[in-house]
Every structure is written in structure tokens, then in C-alpha cells.
Amino acid sequence: MKHKLNLYAITLNSLLSGFRMNLINAIWQPFVLSFGVSMSSLGLVESFSGHRGIVPALAQAIGGWLSDRRGRKPIIVWGSILTFLYLGLCLLAFYLRDWRYILPAVFFLGLSAYSRPARDSMVADSVKAGELGVAYSLVMAAFLLPGIFAPAMGGLMADKLGFGSVFALGLVLEALAVLPIVVWAQETIVYNPPTKGLTLKRFSIPAHLLPFYATTAADFFSWGLGYGIIYGMLAKTYGLSSSQIGLIVSASSIAWLVFQMPAGKLVDRFGGFRLMVISEVLGIPLMIGWLFARSMKAFILLQILWGLVAATWVPALQSYIALKVPKEERGEAMGLLSAFRGIISFPSPLLGGLLYEVTGISGPILANLAGIIVTIAMFLFWVKE
């Protein structure tokens, strides 16, 4: 490997960040709902700064562009600083019982995504082309490892000690996570001052990548309709507690972790395109299962299938785009991909929340299923392998 120390630093950072994110993800939607907001309002929060939100989409476009010019390392560190602000505001919201702190908190949560293209690019810069699938899977496996216990731990802490205890521990974990980057990570790109300013023209999609960008945006939109609010829907529909939601999330993390390294090897052997198609196909029985499941046992078993869906998708997507552009443009390309997907898909959790209020849990899941079928067709008939 070209920069072995970098991969170790990013893997340790991913482990600790994964502990923090897995701890909080299980309780985030119940935490927002605890302020008495509706499912459509939760969908609005997710559309704004959630995983599929408009703020992280735009932040990643800028962060990716800057990481190709200012370096990967400082962008990753700034991402942690923004995460501190998000966690601190969540603590204030909890202890002051004032939902208005949630709004700037989710804004900083979205901005913290600024560092994702830099981190993904540093991984690609640090290994050989034939090792990308395994390298991305190693980093993802480290992220998932705490998911074996952290979601259940977060749910239990929220039930016994209050949501504030979870966010306080999150602050400590994020402080530890940034240390390996600061101390060990080596910059992988030479300072490259921009010859042109950051304008809208910089965000034009290369023609040969447009089918791929559009198809992955369709995927992101589809999964945002159902999966984007699934834990909130389970809490509201079946009255599941934070501890129960934590167990469900833990089950998905365990399954994802088990499948991740084998999936990475398959990506290196067969290519990202085939694995992305397989991932989409696996989503069909998952949606059907969510439609008919009624018990905790059923939801936990379905998370095994979800783990396989995620394990085959993530390294395939990252490897596909990393190999399609030069090293000096990776950050920009990855940031632009995230921005395009986010801009297209950001309304989907809100639409899913509105669907839920009209149809119940079946509406968002059926819409998610329809989107998966459309995405598979786009992959097969439009995207080049």
C-alpha cells in the first residue's frame, strides 16, 4: 500500500466515528419526535440535513472541490469541528427542552458532511487500484463494528438516563475520533491553487458520468421515501421504544459487518456495476418483508437482508466513481456525486412522511419499492459497466 499509515488512521477514525454515529442514529428520530413534532415535520428535518438532505449535499460538493485544492486532511478535521457544534446544540435542546436548538443543530449536522469526499478520496489515494474494494470495506467494517452494541447501548441510555447522556458521550467519541487524523494521517495531494473560482460551472457533470449520477440519484430518492424514516415509522406505528429500535439497528450493523469484507473482495473481482445491481435487486424482498412484518423478531431478521443490501452497495459505489476520474479530481467528483444525489433526493423523506400520514407505513414502503424497480431498469439500460 502506498500510504499504509493513512489507511490505519482513517480506519481508527471510522471506528470511533462509527461508535458515535451508531450510538445516536438509533435515538435520533425518537429524540426529534419527543418534542411533539409530526412525522411530516420529521421528514422535513431529514430532508434538510439528514443523510439525504440538501445541506449535506451542497456541503459535500464544496468540501470535495476544496479537498482537491487545499488537501484532504484539513477538510476532515473541519468536519469534526462542525460535528462538535451539532452535538453541543442537541445537548442544549434536550436540557432546555427547547426545539428551536434542533434547527441550528441539524444545520451543523448537514455541514459536517463537508468532510466525506476528502476522507473517501484519501482512502483511494492511499491504495492501489486493485485494492479499492477491500480498502473501502475495511474502513466501512470499522465503522460498523460498534454497531453491534452501540445502537442498543444508545437506546438503553436514552430510556434510563435521557437523550442528553447519548449526545454527551457522542462529544467525547468525536474528540477521540479526530486525533488519529491530526497525529498520523499524511496528506496525499499537493496544494493545488484553483485556476478558476468556485462557480456553478465547476459543478457541471461530465457527460460520460451523467447516466451513473442520475441512476444513483434515483436510488437515493427511492430509499429516502421509506428507509429514510423507517425508525420513526416503527416507533410511531408499533410503539417501539428507543431500546427496541436500538436492537433493530444493532442487528443491521452486525449483518452489514459480516458481509462487508466479502462484498469488498467481490467488488475488486467483478467490478462495482454488478454489485450495485445485485444490491438493488436485494432491496425488493426487503421492502416486501417490511410491508408484512409485525413483530420485533421479524424486523430484526429483516435487518440481516438490509445488511447485505448495504454491504454490496457502499464499496461498489465508491470504487466505481474512484476509478472513473483522475486522482486530482476525485474529491470534486465524489462531492459532486453526493451533491447531485442530495439535491434530487432531499424532498424524499418529507414526501415519505406526508405519505405516512395519509396511508400509514405501507405508503412510503410501496413508494420505496417502486423506486427500486425503476433504478434497476436505469442501471441495466442506461449505465455503462
Rank of each mutant, 00 (worst) to 15 (best):
G170K: 08
G170I: 06
L171M: 14
L171I: 11
V172Y: 09
L173F: 12
L176F: 14
A177I: 09
L179M: 09
L179F: 09
W184E: 00
W184F: 13
A185C: 03
A185T: 00
T188F: 01
T188H: 01
T188C: 02
T188I: 01
I189A: 02
V190R: 12
V190Q: 10
Y191N: 10
N192M: 02
N192W: 01
N192H: 08
P193Q: 13
P194Y: 13
P194A: 13
T195Q: 12
T195R: 11
T195D: 14
K196M: 14
G197P: 07
G197Q: 06
L198S: 05
T199I: 14
L200Q: 05
F203Q: 03
F203E: 03
P206L: 06
A207G: 02
H208Q: 06
H208V: 04
L210M: 10
L210G: 03
P211C: 09
P211W: 08
Y213H: 05
T215Q: 04
T216G: 04
T216Y: 08
A217H: 09
F220T: 15
F220C: 13
F220D: 10
F221Q: 02
G224S: 06
L225Q: 08
G226V: 02
G226Q: 07
Y227S: 01
Y227G: 00
G228C: 05
I229Q: 07
Y231N: 12
G232T: 01
M233T: 12
M233V: 13
M233W: 02
K236V: 14
Y238W: 11
G239E: 06
L240R: 11
S243T: 15
Q244D: 03
Q244F: 06
I245M: 02
I245S: 00
L247F: 14
L247P: 00
I248M: 06
I248N: 00
A251S: 14
A251V: 03
S252F: 15
A255E: 07
L257K: 08
V258W: 13
F259Y: 13
Q260C: 14
Q260E: 15
M261V: 15
P262E: 13
A263K: 10
G264Y: 07
